[in-house]
Structure formats: C-alpha cells, structure tokens
Design a protein around this nucleic acid. Sequence first.
RNA 1: UGGGGCGUGGUGCAAUGGCAGCACAGCGGACUUUGGAUCCGUUGAUCUUGGUUCGAAUCCAGGCGCCCCAGCCA
Length: 560
Amino acid sequence: MNNEKPTHFIHEMIEADLKSGRYQSVRTRFPPEPNGYLHIGHAKSIVLNFGTAKKYGGQCNLRFDDTNPTKEEVEYVESIQEDIRWLGYEWDELRFASDYFDQLYAWAVQLIKEGKAYVDDLSQEEIRQYRGTLTEPGRNSPYRDRSVEENLDLFERMKNGEFPDGSKVLRAKIDMASPNLNLRDPVMYRILHARHHRTGDQWCIYPMYDWAHGQSDAIEGISHSLCTLEFENHRPLYEWFLDNLPIAHKPRQIEFARLNLTYTVLSKRRLIRLVKEGHVRGWDDPRMPTLAGLRRRGVPPAAIRNFCEAIGVAKANSTIDLALFEYHIRQELNRIAERRMAVLDPVKVVITNYPEGQVEWLEAINNPEDESAGTRKIPFTRELYIERDDFREVRPNKKYHRLSIGHEVRLRYGYFIKAESVVKDEAGNILEIHCTYDPETRGGYAPDGRKVRGTIHWVSAPHAIDAEVRLYDRLFTVPDPRSEADKDFTEFINPNSLTVLTGCKLEPDLAAAAAGTHYQFERKGYFFLDPDSQPGRPVFNRTITLRDTWSKIAKSLGQK
RNA sequence: UGGGGCGUGGUGCAAUGGCAGCACAGCGGACUUUGGAUCCGUUGAUCUUGGUUCGAAUCCAGGCGCCCCAGCCA
C-alpha cells in the first residue's frame, strides 16, 4: 500500500478520507471525451488518476464521457486507449457514460416526479436571456411550473423523438437567482437526433455533462473524482444531483490546475486547427504535444511519467518551462538509448597514409550508461565522412578542439588524425579534407600519453547508409502563443520547426535499426525511426538534441 | 460591478505558528575517447498594508493582482 507521506493536497485529502472512514478504498477514473487525441496535458491527469489508485492500492477506470454524439468518433476512443496503454497504464474497467443512459433516464423521471425537473420549451436564445447575468439574477421560465404529469408526458415524447432538435430541454429545478450560474436550472437533456457511436439510433435525447458525470462516478463507486479547476464552479451542482437522487455512494470531486507548457498550445480547439489547417502533418506529427506525436518523435513514456510526477499537483494556475520536460526526456534517453555514429552534414575525409582497400573493424560501446548493452564493431577505412561543422581550415580560437589544418583530433573509437590540406571546387566549397593518421593510436589511445582534447564522430564512406533525418524545433516562437489578444496563435508558428536533411550518412549497424528503439547519434542528439522509413531508406526523427554547453561557450566567445 | 478559486526565486513545487527548502533554468568549476553523462559550488523568492504573537509564508482584517463561470460543449 502506501508508506510515503502525501506529496500534494489531493493525497492529503484522500488520506484524511481513508482515516475518517468516509471511504474504505480508493477508486478513481480517467474520463476523456472521445473528441480528440490525448496530449501531454491529459498525461498529467492520467498519471494522477492511475498513479493515485496504485499508490493507495485502489482501482482506476477508463470512462469515456461520450454524451455528445455530434462531436465524438470511434477513431478517438481507439487512439485514446492506445495512448493510455503506451503511457504505461491499464484500467481496471473500461466504461462509457453511454452505458448509463437507461439509468440516467430513470433518474430523470424520478426527479420529474418529485417536482425537481421540468421540460422547458424556451428557445436556446430565450434560455440565455432568462438566465440573467453575472451580476443580475435570472427569471423563472414560464414553463417552470408545469404539472408532473405534463412533464412526464413531454419528457417521454422527447425521448420518443416526437420533437425536433432544440425545441425542448429537460432542466433541473433549482434556483434561478443563484449567484452560481450552474445552479440556475441547468439543462439535463437536450434533443439531438444524432447517431451515437455506441448506442446508434436508440436515443435522440442526450444527457449534459453535469447530469452524466457525477452519476457515472457514483455508479462506478468512484471515491475521488479528480478534475480540473474550471469545474470547481460545477461542484455544487455535482453534489445537488447526488443529494437529490437515491444514491448511497457519494464521490468527492477535487479540482486541480491543468498543465500549461511554454512554447506549446494544449487546447483541443487550437490543436485541431493545427491539424485541420495543415500547419502540421497530422495528430501524430512529431511537433505536436499529443501523445501520438510525442511517441512518433521518440519521447519515451517513462520520460512523460517522470515529468508529470515532477511538476506536482496544486490549485494555482501555472505554466511549466518546456526545459523541464526536455530535461526528463534527456534523462531517460541517456539511460536507455543505444549509441551509434551518424554524420548529418557529411564532408569527405581522405586519410592519405592509410592503405587503400583496407578495412579494420573497431569496437564501440553501445551504451556507456548500461554495460549490458554490450559492444559492436564499426568499419574503419581510408575514406570517411565527418560533419562539415567539425572542420575549420583555420582554428578559430584556442578553445576550438575539433579538426583544423595542422591540428590533431581523435576519431571516436578510431585513430588520431591530422588535417593537412583541402580540395575545393571553383566556388570554394570544400570537397575533401586530406589527413594523415597515426597508426599507433588505434582505438583512440595515445601510447605516448599525448593529449588530444577533441573527439569527433565519423562513418566509413564505403560502408555508410544514406538516410533522411528530420530535425524538429519548438512549434512556436514565443513562450505563450495565446498571449496577444489581437494576434492569432498561428502567427507565432516557428517557420523552422521542421528541417529535413537528406544524404545523411549512418554507420552500417543502423541498417538493422528497429522501430521503437531509441538511439543516440553521438554528439548530435537522440533519434527515433519514423514510420515513413522504407527498406534501405531509413527516416529518423530527432527527438531532442544533446545538452549543448559548447553553444554557450561559443556564444560568449562571440563565435558561431 | 455577483459567485468561486489562486498569489513563495526566472519557472514549477514544498515548508501545515519556530533557521524559507527541492527540482529545472542561469552562473562558476572539476572530470571526460560524446563540448554528452557525472560531480562540486553558486546567484536568486514569501503580492501589499495593518493586526495577533516571544516568533507569521502560515492566523485575523483591509487592499491589489490573476484565473474560472452568463453552451442545448466537456
């Protein structure tokens, strides 16, 4: 069970409820509406709900809040399940609010019989006018005092499909003067002649969120119904329904602040626009904060879980620095990623004193953080590729430790080489760098103990595999794309959020790169095979760069 | 101008009347066959005014600021 002390106010409340006997056990639920893909913000709720159940030895259900057939689709109920499992959680029971439509209807009839609900013929516009404003009380609908018999008859005929959409609603009879607008006779049912993805054409009236959620919680025996802050105003209504129904079990709703992330948008409305307007390639575009996007990008689920645990749970609205998420991604990837060498922007190196046609297979470590990952052999030959950026004809400053003419550098797991000359085309572009190597330094060790500060990666030219590599940067150029009221958030989309590199050179071992395996291309970052890959034509997504302290040093030096 | 909620370093979270702490970010250093990882050090905060108290981030009163609510969305 649980020995650690509570980490936040929700767990404190749960422990108090357990101690007082209000509840004997903990049961939570994750209640998505199947009208979009899950994103990192949902992950916070998933980790909270499933994590809380686990911590207290309880259960957690997955319940789809499918009360609005005009917006919901099976595509989403499937993707949501896939994403939750990928994140690392399994629900105790799979439920749907639509499972409870019969019970909800019966309870509504009961409220009508008790004079606590009525059928209203007011139009949507009239209902709004009658509701009053934030500072003025509302007025009773002229239909508020219909007889029980008439209400029963009308409600049944609503159910039977005798009335068109929008012509009538069932409302709870509470208090049109309440300072809490949710209590001003909230709508319980609306008429919607729409086909539901589960119940088909069985219903043409559908329950509203407020009427469905609390009762669904009660039916499932949920002890703690955790939701976001905007539902705090709904809690009195949540409790009113429970108190006015013959329900023994009363769940407790607790609200917490939703996740916000810098340089990211997380509202469904905005996410759907990014997809529908073609700013990204789909819900699983690696730049999207959706779980599907993060998965495709190569973010490990453990990184997301750790991040969600690290940010805490509180009631203050807050925006987490993207850097914290990136920290957890790197921390997990550093632990699990297989190291390989890949040259993204290749330039050829010819080692003039290395025998033509010779191939040496040198040993390289797969993961210095995990000895069990073992080693592999990589081929070394006379012609190699290195990063164009790892060479300067003239050493720019004394902190520059990479290759330059007259200076020595270590080829990772290879030899020390020294640049002697360059071959250029007429435009002055470097075609080849001619180097000499020291045969005594095989494996990268200097028997004479001389120091070489720089170590660069490389691949053997005749063995290299060509690949496409996609580099991603943050999708937005400003920390809060919603911040300026007169500008649409799409105006802040980073035009350089995607860079496609072709002709990248990979070490031959990567021919067998497996989908789902996380790689670190040494010195370049973490990479993950994209499903766009073709046999012999791999496509890699850069999940994230390595931490780059050099760029800071270079910046302070005023160099590129 | 009604009701509900929230204000602690740059960011996020702790401290539950008793030395304001942790993480990320920043800065400095050590080490390094990844300018990675690791290790060490360091800058920096209680919205405000008053009150209670030996003692207040915490309790009380007022003020200020921010968020949510007027869907037949969730």
